[in-house]
Design a protein around this nucleic acid. Structure first.
Length: 577
RNA sequence: CGGAGCGUAGCGCAGCUUGGUAGCGCACUUGCUUUGGGAGCAAGGGGUCGGAGGUUCAAAUCCUCUCGCUCCGACCA
């Protein structure tokens, strides 16, 4: 491609609404254009990268006999009503009606459609296992779109679905997809981690599921990991043991202390000059369990925070949120001074976090305005309650074996794989005959990759102050060929070289624009193709040579125009990714 | 949805407090000069100041309503 004929606009200014590097760079480098909140047009060079990601995914999935299909973006509401997700999906799913007043939606995911295809065609165990996938546009009306392609509302996703007769086949299929995902992200050249995750609304709580997280400081997820034990999990899911707590084990009588206007753990502990871990944090939550209202008191060490997801899984509740001020009033609780002692036991379920030593002595709310208890000992003074893992894992924790400390990184979730079980096949009444001629609902797995998010994540991992540094695997082109000079002679030489590179099948972007050298170099760095080849008046007149620069290292060498295509090909082969 | 903020040229912003000719930088067009790290000079094109209503002789500026966008929380590839 020659730049004189392409629609490409770069920007010096950082767009006002872009926060993170990938978003800023994709806009500045002219890869995407914003249309509306969470909506982006893919411009030619950005789209080339997206298609390269798609192609890598295709090749790896086809290798393990997955079959590509393309399902409709608009799907009838009936299918979703059948699975029960028409209501469940909530506002995230964009629903509308056609002229005949029939319900439709723009697919946020495709379990229903693929299951519908399956049930219409597959009748026998002989046709299983089977994996179908598509690469298609999804729309999710995200509560809060942000960070450009990282969390857009319209985005490109690869979604795959596998069908199996039994659990061992599902396990095998799951593992194949797991391995394919590793191959895909390795080929792209991303530093990633496959972590244990929570299934969320997709499947039963104990279903096997992994997230593929690209390591980046701007990531929205926290990953807990331990290299020694080969453990990695999303912080939401991670089970760890807290270390380094100094409990107060000095026996003392319980008593009330005045703590005027000290409503937070920080304030109370600072006021009483005690470490926060010698206080108990009392959090009251409202939960809707099978349609009934419940209030739960969660107790944590003062400097820990609650992992709501863990609580949600313990309660198996439909809705979970902190109790409102008016609900607290009804329960006779004083906000800021809540504690486990003196509560009406029948009104509330009490859960102690497992990090709490029930034989130790703590500061805790006295359920009276401006008062706290000191030397409250749960075993001696407390209301009976259950024990569970409620806390959010943090740096400094130990693994469950207790042998190693865990570490924390931030990650961008680019892929997620689930074992769905028979959730959807049962809901949609799918029946397949097994070896004994009996009908059975097959088991499913589903496997997603955020294609457009992968591109953004790759830029998060590959950039510097001058612009993008693409991995070779998904760079829009491999070579930025800049012509620096005005004479007819050098222009002719450039044309010759460009043709030679094209003929050799090298992906070259030819900067033949009528612009200054500095201008072209800045654009070249911003776009971030792996190699820059410069044909300049200066070098060419002096010694007849061109300059070849690696974007990632800045390494330069002079190369001869003789056999330029071979030279470039060799330089490309040397690049790792 | 709750909280905070912003809408003025394609992009980044000033002007608004104290109402009176709509501005600056980048980008764009033309000419001349320049040509190895976003060139210089000169001349130009481009705006119903997000929208509607109101106050006023007069509104980008003041008031009311509305729409859009961004940021902080719950969702997710």
């Amino acid at each position: 491609m020659r730049l004189s004929k392409s629609i490409w606009q770069t920007y010096k200014e950082i767009p006002a609404d872009a926060e993170i590097a990938s978003h800023q760079l994709m806009i500045r480098a002219g890869l995407i254009h914003k249309v509306g909140s969470g909506l982006y047009n893919y411009m030619p060079f950005g789209y080339r990268s997206i298609r390269k990601v798609e192609q890598i995914i295709r090749e790896e999935l086809d290798k393990i006999d997955c079959q590509e299909i393309l399902m409709t973006v608009v799907t009838p509401g009936e299918l979703w009503q059948e699975s029960g997700r028409w209501e469940k999906m909530g506002g995230e799913m964009l629903k509308f009606k056609d002229k005949g007043e029939r319900d439709l939606c723009i697919s946020p995911t495709n379990e229903e459609t693929v299951t519908d295809i399956f049930r219409k065609i597959v009748k026998s165990y002989k046709q299983l296992p089977l994996t179908l996938y598509q690469i298609n546009t999804k729309f999710r009306d995200e509560i809060r779109p942000r960070f450009g392609l990282m969390r857009g509302r319209e985005f490109t996703m690869k979604d795959a679905y596998s069908f199996h007769m039994d659990k061992s086949s599902l396990d095998k299929g799951y593992q194949e997809l797991f391995d394919a995902y590793c191959a895909i992200f390795n080929r792209i050249g991303l530093e990633f981690s496959a972590v244990e995750a929570d299934a969320g609304a997709m499947a039963e709580g104990d279903a096997k599921t992994h997230e593929f997280q690209v390591i980046a400081n701007s990531g929205e997820d926290q990953i807990i990991y331990c290299e020694e034990e080969n453990y990695a999990a999303n912080a939401e899911k991670a089970e760890t043991i807290r270390g380094g707590v100094e409990f107060n084990l000095q026996e003392a009588a319980i008593g009330i202390v005045d703590t005027p206007n000290k409503t937070t753990i920080e304030e109370v502990c600072a006021f009483l000059s005690l470490p926060q871990q010698q206080s108990l944090k009392s959090l009251v939550y409202y939960a809707d369990i099978e349609g009934e209202d419940h209030f739960i008191l969660c107790l944590l060490l003062g400097d820990d925070s609650l992992n709501e997801l863990k609580l949600r899984n313990i309660l198996a509740c439909q809705e979970l949120r902190p109790a409102t001020d008016s609900e607290l009033l009804k329960l006779n609780l004083v906000k800021g001074f809540i504690g486990p002692k003196g509560l009406a036991a029948d009104k509330m379920r009490v859960i102690y976090d497992q990090a709490i030593n029930r034989d130790a002595y703590y500061i805790t709310g006295a359920n009276q305005e401006d008062k706290h208890f000191e030397n409250f000992c749960p075993a001696r003074d407390g209301m009976i309650g259950e024990t569970a893992d409620l806390r959010m894992a943090v740096e400094g924790d130990y693994t469950l074996s207790g042998a190693h400390q865990i570490q924390v990184k931030r990650g961008i979730e680019v892929g997620h794989i689930f074992q769905l079980g028979d959730l959807y096949t049962k809901a949609l009444g799918v029946k397949v005959l097994d070896q004994n001629g009996k009908t059975k609902a097959p088991l499913m797995g589903c496997y997603g990759i955020g294609v457009t998010r992968v591109v953004a994540a790759a830029i998060e991992q590959g950039h510097d102050e001058n612009g993008i540094i693409w991995p070779k695997s998904i760079a829009p082109f491999h070579v930025y060929f800049a012509l620096v000079g005005k004479s007819e002679e050098i222009k002719n030489e450039a044309e010759k070289i460009y043709q030679e590179l094209l003929n050799a099948g090298i992906e070259v972007l030819f900067d033949d624009r009528n612009a200054g050298a500095g201008f072209k170099f800045k654009d070249s760095d911003l776009l971030g193709l792996p190699l820059r080849l410069v044909l300049g008046e200066r070098n060419f007149k002096e010694n007849g040579q061109l300059e070849l620069i690696m974007r990632s290292t800045g390494e330069k060498e002079l190369v001869s125009p003789e056999g330029i295509a071979t030279t470039i090909q060799q330089a490309l082969d040397k690049l790792e990714k």
